[in-house]
Design a protein around this nucleic acid. Structure first.
Length: 569
RNA sequence: GGCUAGGUAGCUCAGCAGGUUAGAGCACGUGACUCAUAAUCACGGGGUCGGGGGUUCGAGUCCCCCCCUCGCCA
């Protein structure tokens, strides 16, 4: 038994996430967590909402609510949806927690003591009417290049030219529309990542087993152009972890907070502290190598947009502190999931969002499709046709129908209990051999976090059951040798339990239904396959379950296709 | 423009320490079976492995050039 710390990139508080966000971090993290628990390991699976920053402030203002109230509400919404997808977090925290404030300030202070923070005075656009500094993208004006009137301070959406806010003609605040803007001096803290460059490079180089996607992005940022740049870790905002605090090694940072990318990853640790405070557990044995975490394996899951923060920035914080914090062991990153020929778009409401998905079908349908099509080697694409075909074929026909055919067969010929008699022959021995090979391969792929390939192997395990039934044909054997048919039926019914155990990480609800139907609580992971197929003994009663997975009809699919093509209401 | 990852059967993808007739699922065709959610199982048709050079006895698999897609950055 080993100890595994697993974190999923934390979703931003602003709004409900779409399926692309889900499959990029939370869902594969959950798959891995469930698998490791099933194998008997000790798991700490952490996620949280990322709550600080300007977008949260603006969304709250738009909703007419204080930002803290807004975040509390949205956190509850996201927690509920996560539960709806059966994401099995040990704790779903909040980056606005008191624990994170203390820890973030602690890290900043320690980093400063190690000379890794420097103060930088720069000029930034200030909106007198709004009473605040404006981030570049919250300033709009006319593009000096193409004349587009809604060009943003960082880039013109029309001609794609990169801009500086001062370039804009007639600049105005996106927040209030005010044109009363001026350049003011402001002071910020910068994390001296450039000092950490060599150490980070050596560390990344040592990770030869990481996905190429992860290491190539890290190396790009490390070596491209002038190399790894220092980054500002404070902003002129009210909503966040205050950058001026008691005992801070600097002065004059009043009214400023730490930037989200600095405090968000620290929330992984803080969320574990939140968990500890709630449950009385010990967070330090997961995070402090001087307090029991030296044998922990830490795996992070994230979309590719988050890779720079997790390979460079957060490690700079961890390593730079000089304290014995647990550093990540493996970073599993994902490409993007596109939607029917284009991108999912939160702002334009294009694609399927998590709450909407659950309104259409139960979580297992989505979990199966998303995981079996996870964008590991390249960007992947969601289409309704593909979704319909995969779900109908894999879940309804191959797995669901297998459970259905054998339970109903047994019920009609022998009754609802495992029948007695008969012996296993060559066919059964061959099946056991095939399953043994496949289950070991499935384990290997799950250990390697090869999500798509694991799904393929699992499906092949389901298919093996159908092949066996088709070849053994107990319905024919029954006519001449009922005892032999009984042995075959007994084996197949035991397969249902085995499938439930193996499939649980992908489709937890269906797995629970299958175990309930087999009237067993035995979820033990199969070591010896032969033994695993004798867990349910002769005479063990079962209940013929309802249809495990219903099929998606063509009309339904077309309806959904139309409904989600445009914008979200 | 620079960089990353891709461009393999109609579709979604696997394969690549270079080596006999390039694989899987879906879709399609034929057959088997009738226990089952008109499900399942078997067999089959289908690919000049983006294009062009090169290295090699031999290249989707290595090298060079070009074209296309996606994303990141300037």
């Amino acid at each position: 038994m080993a100890r595994h710390l697993i974190t999923s990139a934390i979703p931003y508080i602003n709004g409900i996430k779409h399926l692309g966000n889900l499959v990029g971090s939370q869902l594969p993290a959950d798959l891995y967590a469930r698998y490791l628990r099933a194998r008997g390991h000790e798991v700490m699976f952490i996620c949280a909402t990322d709550e600080h920053g300007t977008p949260a402030e603006l969304a709250a203002a738009k909703a007419g609510k204080p930002v803290d109230v807004y975040c509390t509400e949205m956190h509850e919404v996201q927690a509920e949806i996560a539960a709806g997808f059966r994401l099995s977090f040990d704790h779903f925290g909040r980056s606005s927690s008191a624990q994170n404030r203390v820890l973030t300030q602690h890290f900043a202070k320690v980093l400063a003591e190690h000379g890794l923070i420097r103060e930088v005075t720069e000029k930034q656009m200030y909106s007198v009417a709004d009473g605040r500094f404006l981030p570049d993208r919250y300033i709009e004006g006319t593009c000096p290049n193409c004349g587009y009137t809604s060009a943003r301070g960082d880039q013109c959406d029309n001609c794609t030219k990169q801009l500086d806010p001062v370039d804009l003609i007639n600049p105005r605040s996106v927040i209030s529309g005010s044109t009363d803007l001026e350049m003011r001096e402001t002071k910020h803290l910068f994390l001296r990542q450039s000092e950490m460059k060599d150490k980070l490079a050596a560390w990344i180089d040592s990770k030869t087993d990481w996905p190429v996607l992860t290491t190539s992005i890290a190396k790009k940022w490390l070596f491209d152009g002038d190399g790894l740049q220092d980054r500002g870790i404070t902003r002129d905002l009210a909503w966040g972890v205050p950058a001026q605090f008691e005992g801070a090694p600097w002065q004059g940072m009043e009214g400023k907070v730490f930037y989200v990318w600095f405090d968000a990853p620290i929330e992984y640790i803080a969320a574990t502290q939140e968990w500890a405070d709630k449950t009385g557990g010990d967070w330090a044995r997961w995070w402090r190598t001087d307090k029991g975490a030296e044998d922990v394996t830490y795996t992070q899951f994230m979309g590719k947009d988050n890779v720079p923060f997790h390979t460079l920035s957060f490690p700079s914080t961890i390593l730079g502190s000089g304290e014995p914090w647990k550093l990540v062991d493996y970073i599993k990153s994902f490409n993007y999931l596109n939607y029917d020929g284009g991108q999912f778009s939160t702002s334009r409401g294009r694609g399927v969002f998590m709450d909407q998905a659950l309104g259409l079908l139960p979580p297992d349908y989505w979990r199966w499709w998303l995981l079996s099509h996870a964008p590991e080697s390249a960007d992947a694409e969601f289409t309704w046709e593909n979704f319909q075909v995969s779900v109908n074929k894999d879940l309804a026909d191959v797995l669901g129908n297998f459970v259905s055919r054998i339970t109903k067969f047994c019920r009609s010929k022998f009754g609802e209990a495992l029948p007695e008699g008969g012996l296993w022959g060559e066919r059964e021995i061959a099946l056991i051999a095939e399953l043994a090979t496949r289950v070991r391969e499935y384990e290997r792929l799950m250990d390697e976090k090869e999500v798509r390939k694991a799904a393929t192997e699992l499906r092949a395990i389901w298919v093996a059951g159908n092949e066996y039934l088709q070849a053994a044909a107990p319905w024919t054997v029954f006519k001449t040798d009922p005892a032999q048919a009984a042995a075959q039926t007994r084996l197949a019914l035991n397969l249902v339990r085995l499938y439930a155990v193996l499939s649980e990480p992908f489709i937890p609800d269906a797995a629970a239904t299958m175990l309930a139907a087999m009237q067993t609580e035995d979820r033990s992971w199969p070591g010896d396959i032969r033994a695993a197929l004798e867990v349910l003994p002769v005479g063990h009663a079962f209940a013929t379950p309802e249809v495990l997975f219903r099929k998606i009809a063509d009309e339904e699919r077309e309806d959904w296709q139309n409904r989600f093509a445009g914008t979200r209401d």
